[in-house]
């Protein structure tokens, strides 16, 4: 059994925690945006696409790196 196979779910959670944390911030803003009741809120939300892309892309890079032996 390799060292990677011994990693627990908690280790994986910690690996992704900075990415998950910022994603949760973004999602919580999106949740609160539903209270605003102005559809233009979502247009303003488009301004955060670079940050959202960076968060998701970094998650993909970490995933790819974790797949390597």
């Amino acid at each position: 059994m390799t060292e990677r196979a011994k990693r627990s779910w908690f280790d994986v959670l910690v690996d992704y925690s900075p990415i998950l944390a910022l994603l949760m911030v973004w999602l919580s803003v999106a949740t609160k945006a539903t209270n605003v009741g102005n559809p233009y809120t979502w247009v303003v939300g488009l301004t955060t696409l670079p940050a959202l892309f960076a968060i998701l892309y970094s998650g993909w890079i970490v995933y790819e790196q974790n797949q390597q032996p």
């Binding site: 609160k32 605003v36 809120t41 303003v44 301004t47 955060t48 670079p50 940050a51 960076a54 968060i55």
Partner: peptide
């Protein structure tokens, strides 16, 4: 810093809205 500021462009108007 740009990533954080970018998120705040949406976060500040939403979180300070009278509904929140």
């Amino acid at each position: 810093s740009f990533i954080c500021m970018d998120i705040d462009l949406w976060s500040d108007p939403v979180m300070t809205h009278p509904a929140n």
